[in-house]
């Protein structure tokens, strides 16, 4: 199998002295759909910036499809399409001109450029808007325009930095479909997102980055399998004063109010076992809902683990 990206001990210290990457190593195989996750300021965009040469690295090496990016500047750039986190096209230009110009930068003859431009603007639902100035587009359309622009030279590797931020649910789903199709047709995709269900839906492998270090790098399946606890909010049909004594059942519970409590259950305990327990203790349940996305929980536990569990970015 070919390696699409090999990052070796990459470091970055910005001019202001901030150490954004503290030696990350990562491999993404060709054909993969890869999620790069991490909290705000973790170093995701910095990593992508280095891959796309917008950020100068301080140390380490990067190979794209087996070629060192410093030694093979032009070839590696041809293989790469990038959708940045922030809008970065001219607000005064028309939609079609933006994509056509980008094709020109890649040396594409006009005829071919025009065909590709139409193909991707149509696929991303922007063809009707082709003669509009880009600043008149909605936020979601602007993101899609950047995807069309990144695809016009049909790169083997597409990197998307939060492509679905601020995109409505319907559109997000259609973007997922589009990206899945693209991936099935052979394009390697790396994406960052703060919507963990998005990563769960789309990606086969993931890395979690925090404070400039990789704290987890595994397959989505292995990660989810490692998930051994699940937390629910239990809504009660009849009020209770206090929680029952659960005995040695593999769970822990926390009283919220007389109409609800929170319960964290070991994965070994099945749903029917849980309801038998409720029945046994005369707990009348009206509704049960998952407290958080499974991956979210895992994500937070990984970050906590890496930080020693004492650090919270936002103080309550």
């Amino acid at each position: 199998m070919t390696t699409a990206i090999a990052i070796d001990n990459l470091t970055k210290t910005y001019a202001n002295g901030l150490q954004a990457l503290k030696g990350i190593s990562l491999e993404v195989q060709q054909g993969d759909f890869f999620a790069l996750l991490g909290p705000n300021g973790a170093g995701k965009s910095t990593t992508i910036g280095i891959l796309s040469t917008l950020v100068n690295k301080s140390g380490g090496g990067v190979e794209i499809f087996g070629k060192n990016v410093d030694a093979h500047v032009y070839e590696t750039k041809l293989d790469l399409g990038v959708v940045p986190q922030e809008i970065n096209f001219s607000q005064f230009e028309k939609v079609r001109d933006i994509v056509m110009t980008q094709a020109g930068y890649y040396g594409m003859p006009r005829q071919l450029a025009a065909e590709r431009c139409e193909k991707y603007l149509r696929k991303l639902g922007l063809w009707e808007k082709r003669y509009e100035r880009s600043r008149t587009l909605s936020g979601g359309m602007k993101r899609r325009l950047m995807i069309a622009r990144a695809l016009v030279h049909e790169p083997r590797l597409l990197i998307l930095d939060e492509p679905t931020a601020g995109v409505d649910i319907e559109l997000r789903r259609s973007m997922w479909e589009f990206l899945t199709e693209l991936n099935e047709a052979g394009t390697t995709i790396i994406l960052t997102t703060h919507y963990l269900e998005e990563a769960e839906q789309l990606c086969r492998n993931i890395a979690i980055i925090d404070h400039g270090r990789i704290v987890e790098n595994t397959s989505m399946r292995a990660l989810l399998a490692a998930l051994d606890k699940q937390t629910y909010i239990v809504e009660l049909a009849a009020p209770i004063r206090a929680l029952p004594d659960w005995g040695d059942a593999p769970l822990s519970a926390e009283f919220i109010d007389e109409h609800s409590f929170e319960i964290t259950v070991d994965a070994r305990l099945t749903m029917s076992d849980l309801f038998k327990l409720f029945l046994l203790h005369s707990v009348e349940v009206s509704a049960l809902r998952s407290k958080s996305n499974r991956l979210e929980q895992l994500f937070l536990s990984r970050l906590d683990g890496a930080r020693g569990g004492d650090e919270h970015v936002v103080q309550p």
Binding site: K77, N88, T101, Y106
Partner: peptide, 12 residues
Amino acid sequence: QRSVEELLVSPV
């Protein structure tokens, strides 16, 4: 406007 990035990521 950061559109210079269009040029910088391309192989020009």
